[in-house]
Amino acid sequence: MSHIFWSNIFNRPTSELQSIVELWQDTPLFENIPTRHVQFLSKKMHVRSFMAGERIFQLGSQGAGALMVLEGSVQIRADTTELALLKLGDFFGEIALAEPEKRTADAYSVTNTRLVYFLKQDLEEWIEYEPRLGSRFLMNLSAILARRLSLANKEMVTL
């Protein structure tokens, strides 16, 4: 068994990494992306903890990437109106993976929450070395964004 002093403290525990990989694989973002690559990207992701009621990001702030709920729940809201309540495995903020756009809503943790950050810079680096899989990922991303846009359009029509 390796001693705590000498072991690499920067490495993420395997079980947590495995659950991050599995959760991402269940999302449409990583559809048809081989496990090896999801694992490679997941190793680069960042897990952050938020207290209940803590702000995750706010409308208008610059987004560095997408986030996925690893534990707890997240409320997406515009002013005081709840737009969505996200639970384990749900992802949000994916627009920032496509464009360095400003966040389009506020996000708050409802309970004590753990989130995984998937940064745009890690995606860009991966695409540089894996352009074929990268284009597949970008197709997945554009399909998700198109679906969200069409839903938003339908909602506007009904208003």
């Binding site: 938020f50 702030s61 610059q62 810079q121």
Partner: peptide, 12 residues
């Protein structure tokens, strides 16, 4: 947490 994204954006 409030500066995490901004920090990465600037670093990037």
């Amino acid at each position: 947490n409030t500066s995490f994204e901004l920090g990465w954006l600037i670093y990037h």
